[in-house]
Design a protein around this nucleic acid. Sequence first.
DNA 1: CTGGTAAATTCAGTTGCTAGATTTAATGCT
DNA 2: AGCATTAAATCTAGCAACTGAATTTACCAG
Lengths: 401, 401
Amino acid sequence: MGMNVSTSVLRRLNIEALLRHAFTSGTFTAAEAMDATSLTRATVLGLCDELTAAGWIEEVEDSRTAGLSRRGRPARRHRLRSGAGLVIGVDAGRSGYRAMAADLRGTVLATGRRELDPDVVDRELRISTVQDLVREVREASASAAPLLVTVIGIPAPVDTRGRSPIDVGTFWRLMNSGFPEHLAGRVVVENDANLSALAEHGLHPEANMAALLVGERVGAGLIVDGRLLHGALGGAGEMRFLETVLQDDIGAEGVGSLARRWTREGLAAGRESPLLAALPAESLTAVDVFAAAQAGDALARDVLDRIGERIARIAAILVSLLGIERIVLAGAVASSLEPVLVRAREVLPDIAYAPFPELVASGLGRDAVVRGAIEHALSCLREDPLELLELLEPAELPDSP
Amino acid sequence: MGMNVSTSVLRRLNIEALLRHAFTSGTFTAAEAMDATSLTRATVLGLCDELTAAGWIEEVEDSRTAGLSRRGRPARRHRLRSGAGLVIGVDAGRSGYRAMAADLRGTVLATGRRELDPDVVDRELRISTVQDLVREVREASASAAPLLVTVIGIPAPVDTRGRSPIDVGTFWRLMNSGFPEHLAGRVVVENDANLSALAEHGLHPEANMAALLVGERVGAGLIVDGRLLHGALGGAGEMRFLETVLQDDIGAEGVGSLARRWTREGLAAGRESPLLAALPAESLTAVDVFAAAQAGDALARDVLDRIGERIARIAAILVSLLGIERIVLAGAVASSLEPVLVRAREVLPDIAYAPFPELVASGLGRDAVVRGAIEHALSCLREDPLELLELLEPAELPDSP
DNA sequence: CTGGTAAATTCAGTTGCTAGATTTAATGCT
DNA sequence: AGCATTAAATCTAGCAACTGAATTTACCAG
């Protein structure tokens, strides 16, 4: 059809504003959109009709049927058509991948996962695994909607342009396996801790917050003044400095690693711990330590306390240097972290100044990164709805369904 | 005078784009503006005429007279009229104020200063001093141009909205003395270290850099991903965490303070230092220590080395946690800091990982904050040229020629 | 003086918004 | 049932402001 190729600047601007309103608010009336876009009713309704015809929004029950108004002519109501597009989030971790497909309202339609041998260094394999997984969740989502954005979280620094630095080994390069070139549509690569931060930010928006991804290593996703930080070479949130600053050689080791290390050291130093001593030292995990502490084991409790103190130190730095108000600990062990956090909150007043940051454990568990990926995909859309709309334009916008 | 009150959205947008181009590029031709704004020649020239009539831009010698083109009809050239507006920057320090007035191209037209007793706690006095000083530099600038923006740098945390937290004492509140309510026009309050960072950023733009203001206390201005960080309560750049992290009670003490402290401690511990021991302990300053080190005094050199090591620790944290690439040390002592920086660069490889940040001393000396204030004022204009244009509109933009 | 180049100017044509009048949809009161 | 009331949708003319193309201007070189 005769859809003008170079749609006027103004028109684009207005469509964008309306679409953004549709993304942010749920269902909306013309009057609300008029407030949001400062356009006339005539214009808003005209655009709504067009967007409806194009399939981006849909008309829902009017305000009276919905019980929202009593007098006067009922207002027509529209909302973003959740099925207008699909987004996919992938947590491309070291030892396994998780993916989710969601609609435009963030409703998860399908999930999938793959295990990977963390020690196998095979770029091709990682790429094809992600390709497979994306195809799988897309099919499982049973949605004919076009795939708008795919966000991939990787355990390596990522700069504002999605690139990872060349590290001494090949690890980062392996993790950031050039996904955009090997997947269809718009692909965004982001650091995993950053995505956790976005996930938590989505649940509880706060302008200055951090997510600490505490698995085998600690990595932070930092949100300051409402924006995610990347830094040179994507280095923001890197925690190696702890090594020299805290004058030990522990550095950025995470909860898993520290729990094992300090338990072994304690046992080697002859500490009594019937529960932990009974376990084979080689297969000892953080989960065992948490369980032992729960059961009252003194060594286990000490270990968790030390971990809590370390978290508190990190918190003290983040709150002072960056004005962080809320720190969320995420990762597989997040749900067990409460005893660690209790200790951290306890010592914080001794090593930092008020106001202290809120210290909480993530409720998202293993899904934090994937959820963040979905969240990020949706916020890309919210920020620039037109760009995406144009990505598909060839087939789109012609005739009403 | 029939200028439509609600000038069309599109028109505003285009004027803004053109004005921004005028701010960023120096002199420009219609063709350049067409590229920048993606408008037609007809439109660009129309807007140029209007803006010229309104006094915001001016026509300068054409491209042939300027020797820029040989063939064809010479292109008309325009540029921002530097005299169209005035900006003022103030460094409202604890013990004295400095101010500068500059035109729209950043050329300094006048400077002024006032000394203040740092121990006098008098809000009214501080306000009236700034009012005086602003009036003084404005008059000294001999410019009839309207004052568009005044930026004031203060030694207290300032959040994104220009507010300082209520501290335990009244110091911060005293520093942030509600200037916007007591000065004419648009007034922006910003932290002094942040302004130093902007000053350095203006001279040598780098997306990830920090300014360390090292006077009696250390404070950092942090620029990450090209943006200044503020954090909750304006706390970003706060260095108190050093106190507990480095396990000493020195905390955020600056070069001046540390030089005195460590020299006294050295002397008290019986270190030999004919040069420094000769000076009265009470009036000893950092300048004396720098001079002694220059003259070969061993104690003085040790003190400077220790300061250098401390700077290196801070650098190690900033580069790792935030991906900072360049750290500029600013403040009154900046010009003497080279020996400190030499030591800092020397130890950095031992306590941090490559790539190391560039460590340099500011060349701006005592003017760093005021310069940053001017820089910030101009970038406010660059970001949103229309807002300012509208602030004065009453007399402006009346009839078409 | 003429041809060539590159810009400025002019002007009709078009887009897409706004403002205001009119119409429509529903309820409540008499 | 009929009519007033409310609030929205729709229709219409009017207009601002941009684009595109044709035309004119400015200047140089030969």
